[in-house]
């Protein structure tokens, strides 16, 4: 099973992954710090003031990356969950478990910063815009996955049940996005459009992309760290103890 000389499958076992993750975390953390620092510098000191929105637009340097991350992380989480269901691979489920809280946090931040941006720009803290609504539903789904996992004691069932729900949610979010857009065209009243964004200067785009990369690195670092927690916590489960029967260990895997 070797792949270009390196045995990748070696790292699919939790015991081998734990030290590997430990070595990778400092690098990703450093990259996150540097990228977020550079992004903030460009965002606050290089990017010009927007002539329509004034300086309030600078919120997008944290809002857009947070919103993107919330969606990326959901898709990645669902992909791990699907992989786990397909291959019956425990580490995949553990990855999905490790990603969920970070994704939920970014979703919450995207909503919070969105309303902080909306108040000065639209004059309202909340608008039933398609993006905001689907982001809200995304937050509910993250919370649902975390709570579903938390309320199942049997690890194997918890892994698989939350994976099924994560996959169902992947279908749901785009449907909600389009249905709310459709719904908004029906209710012409609240016709505040977020899509009619003003043309952005190149430095603004750069700041946004650098911040997004920084958030990516941050997410990887935090996810790996949480993955380590999950591995250690699960090793304490009875099925992993030295006295466990072979059958129990086999079931846990």
């Amino acid at each position: 099973m070797s792949f270009t000389g390196i045995n990748w499958f070696k790292y699919s076992s939790p015991q081998a992954f734990h030290p590997l993750a430990g070595r990778m975390i400092p690098w990703f953390s450093a990259a996150a710090l540097v990228l977020i620092g550079v992004g903030l510098y460009i965002g606050f000191f290089v990017a010009p003031t927007d002539f329509q929105q004034g300086d309030a637009y600078r919120i997008i340097f944290v809002h857009v990356p947070a919103a993107w991350m919330s969606m990326f992380l959901y898709v990645i989480m669902a992909a791990w969950a699907g992989l786990g269901l397909g291959l019956n691979a425990r580490p995949s489920f553990m990855m999905a478990q490790a990603i969920a809280p970070t994704g939920a946090m970014f979703t919450f931040l995207a909503l919070l910063t969105g309303s902080m941006w909306g108040k000065p720009t639209w004059g309202a803290w909340w608008v039933w815009d398609a993006r905001l609504t689907s982001e809200l539903i995304l937050l509910f789904q993250y919370i649902g996955i975390i709570l579903l996992r938390a309320s199942i004691d049997d690890l194997r069932r918890a892994d698989r049940a939350s994976a099924v729900f994560a996959l169902v949610g992947v279908v749901n979010v785009p449907i909600i996005y389009f249905s709310v857009r459709w719904w908004n065209t029906l209710h012409q009243g609240a016709s505040v459009s977020m899509t009619a964004s003003p043309k952005m200067a190149a430095t603004m785009v750069t700041a946004m992309l650098v911040m997004t990369l920084g958030f990516w690195m941050y997410s990887i670092a935090v996810t790996l760290a949480r993955m380590r927690c999950v591995i250690v916590e699960r090793e304490r489960q009875p099925a992993w103890g030295k006295n466990a029967s072979i059958q129990e260990v086999a079931e846990a895997r």
Binding site: I137, F140, I143, G144, S151, G169, S179, W183
Partner: peptide, 25 residues
Amino acid sequence: LTLGLRGSGFLVALLVLPLFVPVLI
């Protein structure tokens, strides 16, 4: 998904209501 879990009444609402949104709309 919530079969036989404690507090499954609230949990099922939390899981299912977001999925009901398009139908409601």
